[in-house]
């Protein structure tokens, strides 16, 4: 029973972080109609920012959240303005490969600048903190990451559903042309979506780096599940992405415990295939 509770808790902790990453991804897709295949690499960039803030200036990752968020947000805007903007007008192939190119580019850049070594933050504030409730242990960094992710996700939800600019963003994702007819500049909304998607990922990155080392390929571990989550939840659906993220977090942990652990990631892909084939619009998708 305790073990089961432990897998549930671990699943929820993971789900919260995956949720923030996936919300950024689904927001970009919803508005811009492009899957950011470099999303995991955005996370990697954010992790490096937070890592070097600690390494060079001794700033704990917890305090470099704004820096990582802003850095990855700007990366998103630059990606949009330089290449994505042009690829949007092209074929599906262009739309897919522009972010694949970005993925390769960012990985190569990280490898060239920082080598392939694993780099981890040592002695973070939360490093030794942890809770233990009735035999279920909750490590401090993971708990902080989950709580921080939920706060950030709520903030994004507040922005898109409650503010004027956020509503304009949602309007653009629902009907680009009708939004333009009201004076909403689609290009600004596209750039905004990349900015917010980047911010979400940057926040997640700074939270994760307190307990996980970074290296040029560390994005894939979160990027791949994020694609599955976004498709599972229904492309562009923020609520769907959040729900699917928790589902994936739980399944990975529960399956990892009850079924052979080496296959724990397998079930996510299997679940994904079953769901999208039975219901191509995703769990909560609208299209």
């Amino acid at each position: 029973m305790e073990v089961f509770a432990q897998t549930i808790v671990s699943g929820l902790l993971l789900g919260a972080v995956l949720g923030l990453i996936a919300v950024g991804l689904t927001l970009i897709f919803g508005v811009v109609d492009i899957v950011n295949f470099a999303h995991g690499e955005f996370l990697m960039v954010g992790m490096y920012i937070a890592f070097f803030a600690w390494r060079l200036w001794g700033v704990d990752p917890l305090f470099s959240i704004p820096l990582a968020a802003l850095g990855v947000g700007i990366l998103g805007v630059i990606s949009y303005l330089t290449f994505v903007r042009h690829a949007m007008r092209g074929t599906l192939l262009s739309q897919i490969f522009v972010t694949f190119g970005l993925l390769i580019f960012l990985r190569g850049l990280a490898q060239a600048l920082f080598s392939s070594n694993f780099r981890g933050v040592q002695g973070s504030i939360l490093g030794d903190v942890g809770l233990s409730v009735g035999g279920v242990s909750v490590p401090g960094p993971q708990l902080a990451a989950a709580v921080g992710s939920l706060i950030a996700t709520s903030a994004i939800g507040w922005f898109v559903w409650r503010t004027r600019m956020g509503k304009a963003l949602m309007a653009t994702s629902q009907d680009r042309e009708a939004a333009a007819m009201l004076g909403i500049n689609p290009h600004r909304m596209f750039a905004l979506a990349w900015f917010i998607g980047g911010i979400a990922t940057g926040v997640a990155a700074a939270l994760i780096v307190s307990y996980q080392p970074v290296h040029p390929n560390s994005g894939i571990a979160y990027g791949l599940p994020a694609f599955m989550i976004v498709a599972l939840g229904g492309f562009g659906s923020i609520g769907g992405a959040l729900a699917a993220a928790f589902l994936v977090g739980l399944i990975e942990n529960i399956a990892g415990f009850y079924l052979p652990t080496e296959y724990k990631e397998l079930w996510i892909f299997v679940l994904f295939l079953i769901v999208v084939i039975a219901r191509p619009q995703g769990l909560l998708g609208r299209r």
Binding site: T82, V98, F100, I104, G108, Q111, A112
Partner: peptide, 16 residues
């Protein structure tokens, strides 16, 4: 690594 940078850039240029 630089090769990855170059061909990532090339793929982006071609897509765009």
């Amino acid at each position: 690594a630089l090769n990855l940078v170059a061909y990532g850039l090339l793929v982006m240029l071609i897509a765009a």
